[in-house]
């Protein structure tokens, strides 16, 4: 049973330019582990050195953030789509905010 994982544009350079990858998995964690086993260079962009998902990486199953489901233990079926969504954030140097 394979689940579809959608890869965001900045990370497609690590997945042979593929927009999505079909991965046999029963949970989100299994899917991400298999994905990063297949594409090793992807690993450091998704996981910290301690093996946890980086805080800049959001993972959705269909329209739901896995933080509000069962995180990496969230079960998936072949009907589900896992999306890796990069956090887009920025701002000013804090020293400039003085008023």
């Amino acid at each position: 049973m394979a689940v579809k994982v959608v890869i965001p544009t900045p990370l497609r350079q690590y997945t042979e330019k593929r927009e999505s990858v079909e991965i046999p998995a029963r949970t989100v964690g299994e899917a991400l582990a298999a994905l990063t086993a297949q594409y090793a260079d992807l690993r450091k962009h998704l996981f910290s050195s301690d093996g946890t998902l980086r805080s800049f990486v959001n993972v959705y199953v269909n329209d739901e953030d896995i933080r509000f489901l069962q995180k990496e233990q969230t079960p998936v079926t072949e009907k589900d789509i896992i999306s890796i969504v990069p956090s887009i954030a920025g701002g000013l140097p804090l020293r400039c905010v003085c008023s």
């Binding site: 959001n58 953030d65 956090s87 887009i88 954030a89 920025g90 701002g91 000013l92």
Partner: peptide, 21 residues
């Protein structure tokens, strides 16, 4: 979605964050 690094010093005046949804 993304915790603040310096709570109290960060706001919409000096930070932006896009909702992943």
């Amino acid at each position: 979605v993304l915790p603040l690094e310096s709570p109290g010093l960060e706001s919409e005046r000096n930070r932006f964050l896009i909702d992943p949804r």
